[in-house]
């Protein structure tokens, strides 16, 4: 019966979604952590992105679902940043005045995370996709829906800011010394 055929398709889609999450979940979570800094927030962001992906799975699965999730993650991180930036304390200031117990800040202990969080979201996303995901500049442009020139300029500015970031003093002194 036709209905049974469609139900079989739905079951197959469910299995495909599970396999996709199982295969890509760790990498996407790490991508999200680099985007927002906090593992808890990153997991929530990833759940939201996957929920959206699940909702459109029949269409998304025919293309590149991982690229779709990454794009949703970047947009969600940007939206979150816009909502929070008014009440957020600048990282430099928080660092200078000493730390009180704050779960959001505890996750920012790592120098790289701090340095990345100091970058604008799109610049951060370009660096994460380019260097963590090992994408080409063209792939980054396609994922973020921007031009190749924008990717190049954002990557260049982002790298320049990271090189001069005091947060990375302990990260890779060898290469910083010779610049």
């Amino acid at each position: 019966m036709a209905t049974e055929g469609v139900l079989r398709v739905l079951e197959r889609d469910e299995r495909a979604f599970e396999e996709f999450v199982s295969r890509s979940g760790n990498r996407l979570l790490r991508n999200a952590i680099l985007l927002v800094g906090d593992p808890g927030v990153a997991e929530d962001l990833l759940q939201g992105a996957l929920e959206r992906t699940y909702r459109h799975w029949s269409q998304v699965s025919t293309g590149h679902p991982e690229a779709y999730v990454r794009r949703v993650l970047v947009n969600a991180a940007a939206s979150r940043w816009r909502r929070r930036r008014i009440r957020e304390v600048p990282l430099e200031a928080a660092h200078d005045i000493g730390r009180t117990y704050d779960p959001d800040r505890l996750s920012l202990r790592d120098g790289l995370t701090r340095a990345l969080m100091a970058l604008p979201v799109r610049q951060r996303a370009v660096l994460v996709l380019r260097y963590f995901e090992d994408m080409s500049e063209m792939e980054v442009a396609l994922t973020l829906g921007c031009s190749l020139g924008t990717v190049k300029s954002q990557a260049s500015r982002g790298l320049a800011r990271l090189r001069t970031s005091s947060h990375l003093d302990d990260v890779q002194p060898a290469t910083r010394r010779v610049r």
Partner: peptide, 24 residues
């Protein structure tokens, strides 16, 4: 060198993060 280090640090600092088994 800097870009390679950046890549290595990104990987190293997130390698311990594991998605929940019941994520899907």
């Amino acid at each position: 060198d800097f870009e390679r280090d950046l890549r290595d640090v990104m990987v190293a600092q997130t390698s311990g993060a594991v998605a929940p088994a019941d994520l899907a």
